[in-house]
């Protein structure tokens, strides 16, 4: 029986889908059988971030309605073994799927995979409820901003009321330079406020935009620090005790170098 983990945040745009794609890739690289499920019915985008949009034929809606076999609806990622995507229907609404159906779907997937990563839509309405109902645990993604942390706190409360108590925090887009200047909350500030367990910090990385443009999760890039951070989260999910590094600001020389070469 695999683990079903919902990736959620409350606020939109903090990096839920990117985290799902990268963690899925990282776990598959560790040799685990992984399925990433897009639960954002009507606004699907996990397929795009993973670069699999051209190969999506069937969606979770088709599986629920019985139009197609679950095996047939799973899109295989060709870049890494054992990674599958189950896309969301773009034609339907979030209310077209019932919590009970979603729960059954998760159970079925847990039988087939070691990890079922569910990419939750933003918000606290039925879309979020459906994404969470079949999950055993949750990864809360937030950024070091007041609005994102507030929404994360709300989501933590809602997950507790759904009796999902195994929660881990991912802090995304932390800028070491701004933290050093005292213009961004650091990881300790955020843990103080949310008081849940931190499982990883992803430093701000412009390469993330590039990787989304290309549809190739950053985790594939061996030199990427952000990609490496996702790999570390994957290993922590696997039970390894890994310290969470504090990121140092880039050197004065390094940032000058960057500016010179990004001039045009």
């Amino acid at each position: 029986m695999g683990r079903a983990i919902v990736i959620t945040s409350g606020k939109g745009g903090v990096g839920k889908s990117t985290s799902t794609a990268n963690l899925g890739t990282a776990l598959a690289m560790l040799g685990r059988a992984v399925v990433v499920v897009d639960a954002d019915v009507g606004l699907r985008n996990l397929d795009i971030i993973m670069g699999l949009e051209s190969r999506v034929v069937y969606t979770s809606m088709d599986v629920i309605e019985g139009t197609c076999d679950i095996e047939k609806a799973l899109v295989k990622d060709r870049r890494v073994e054992n990674l599958r995507l189950l896309a969301a229907s773009q034609k339907n609404n979030k209310t077209d799927i019932q919590a009970k159906q979603m729960k059954e779907l998760c159970l079925e997937l847990k039988d087939m995979f070691d990890y079922v990563l569910i990419d939750s839509p933003a918000g606290i309405e039925q879309g979020f409820q459906n994404a969470s109902v079949g999950a055993d645990e949750a990864l809360i993604v937030t950024t070091p901003e007041v609005a994102a942390v507030r929404d994360a706190d709300r989501i933590i409360g809602l997950l507790q009321s759904m009796e999902i108590n195994d929660m881990n925090l991912v802090i995304n887009r932390l800028s070491p330079n701004m933290v050093k200047a005292g213009d961004m909350m650091n990881q300790q500030d955020i843990i103080d406020i949310l008081s849940i367990k931190l499982i990883g910090v992803i430093p701000e990385d412009q390469e993330m935009v590039v990787s989304t443009n290309r549809g190739l999760p950053l985790t594939h890039d061996r030199r990427s620090i952000a990609g490496d951070s996702f790999k570390r989260i994957a290993r922590r999910l696997e039970g390894e005790e890994l310290p969470i590094p504090t990121f140092k600001p880039e050197s004065w020389f390094g940032s000058l170098f960057d500016k010179l070469f990004n001039w045009g």
Partner: peptide
């Protein structure tokens, strides 16, 4: 950034943190 470093205003991250604490008290 230089002006901010020289000014006596509290660091903006501390402002963020104290605002958040208050917001969350009310939310919770």
């Amino acid at each position: 950034r230089l002006m901010r470093a020289l000014s006596r205003e509290p660091k903006s991250k501390n402002v963020a943190k104290s605002r958040l604490k208050l917001i969350l008290v009310q939310d919770r």
